Amino acid sequence: MDCGICYAYQLDGTIPDQVCDNSQCGQPFHQICLYEWLRGLLTSRQSFNIIFGECPYCSKPITLKMS
């Protein structure tokens, strides 16, 4: 499936590997796309290497662990 942010399947050789945990959403994202999206939200917060925010599609909580 394509990334829900950039709408591409491959981005710099990677495929969407982050998925919204909401079973009714399940939208996939590239890690870098989701990172940039969450960084741009005023409501997002970060604790060590984990960013907490809202899914761009369903607005439910989503987390991103940076590797």
Rank of each mutant, 00 (worst) to 15 (best):
Asp2Arg: 09
Asp2Glu: 11
Asp2Val: 08
Asp2Ser: 07
Asp2His: 04
Asp2Gly: 05
Asp2Trp: 03
Cys3Glu: 00
Ile5Ser: 02
Cys6Ile: 03
Cys6Ser: 03
Cys6Lys: 00
Tyr7Glu: 08
Tyr7Cys: 13
Tyr7Asn: 12
Ala8Asn: 04
Ala8Ser: 15
Ala8Tyr: 15
Ala8Phe: 02
Tyr9Phe: 07
Tyr9Gln: 09
Tyr9Arg: 14
Gln10Thr: 13
Leu11Ile: 15
Leu11Gly: 01
Leu11Ser: 07
Leu11Thr: 03
Leu11Phe: 15
Leu11Val: 11
Asp12Lys: 06
Asp12Thr: 04
Gly13Trp: 01
Gly13Phe: 02
Thr14Asn: 09
Thr14Phe: 06
Thr14Ala: 13
Thr14Ile: 08
Thr14Lys: 10
Thr14Leu: 09
Ile15Glu: 07
Ile15Trp: 12
Pro16Asp: 02
Pro16Lys: 02
Asp17His: 10
Asp17Arg: 01
Asp17Ser: 10
Gln18Ala: 06
Val19Thr: 15
Val19Ile: 09
Val19Ser: 10
Val19Tyr: 15
Cys20Gly: 01
Asp21Ser: 09
Asp21Pro: 11
Asp21Arg: 07
Asp21Val: 11
Asp21Phe: 11
Asn22Gly: 04
Asn22Glu: 00
Asn22Lys: 03
Ser23Asn: 12
Ser23Lys: 08
Gln24Ile: 05
Gln24Met: 13
Cys25Trp: 01
Cys25Arg: 01
Cys25Asn: 00
Cys25Ile: 06
Cys25Leu: 00
Gly26Asp: 04
Gly26Ala: 05
Gly26Cys: 03
Gln27Val: 14
Gln27Met: 09
Gln27Pro: 01
Gln27Trp: 03
Gln27Arg: 10
Gln27Lys: 06
Pro28Gln: 15
Pro28Tyr: 08
Pro28Arg: 11
Phe29Gly: 00
His30Val: 00
His30Ala: 00
His30Thr: 01
Gln31Asp: 06
Gln31Arg: 10
Gln31Pro: 12
Gln31Tyr: 07
Gln31Phe: 10
Gln31His: 06
Ile32Thr: 15
Ile32Ser: 14
Ile32Gly: 13
Cys33Leu: 01
Cys33Gly: 00
Leu34Val: 08
Tyr35Val: 09
Tyr35Ile: 12
Glu36Val: 05
Glu36Met: 03
Glu36Ser: 13
Glu36Trp: 07
Glu36Phe: 14
Trp37Ala: 11
Trp37Met: 05
Leu38Lys: 04
Leu38Trp: 13
Leu38Met: 07
Leu38His: 04
Arg39Ala: 09
Arg39His: 09
Gly40Ala: 04
Gly40Glu: 15
Leu41Gln: 15
Leu41Met: 06
Leu41Arg: 14
Leu41Trp: 10
Leu41Val: 09
Leu42Gln: 14
Leu42Thr: 14
Leu42Met: 08
Leu42Ser: 14
Leu42Glu: 14
Thr43Trp: 07
Thr43Leu: 05
Ser44Trp: 06
Ser44Ala: 09
Arg45Tyr: 15
Gln46Gly: 07
Gln46Leu: 09
Phe48Glu: 06
Phe48Leu: 12
Phe48Gly: 15
Phe48Gln: 13
Ile50Trp: 10
Phe52Ala: 15
Gly53Arg: 02
Gly53Ala: 03
Cys55Trp: 02
Pro56Val: 04
Pro56Leu: 02
Tyr57Gly: 11
Tyr57Ile: 11
Cys58Gln: 00
Cys58Leu: 04
Cys58Lys: 00
Ser59Leu: 07
Ser59Ile: 05
Ser59Glu: 13
Ser59Phe: 10
Pro61Asp: 10
Pro61Glu: 15
Ile62Trp: 03
Ile62Gly: 01
Thr63Tyr: 11
Thr63Val: 04
Leu64Ile: 08
Lys65Gly: 11
Lys65Gln: 02
Met66Lys: 13
Ser67Phe: 09
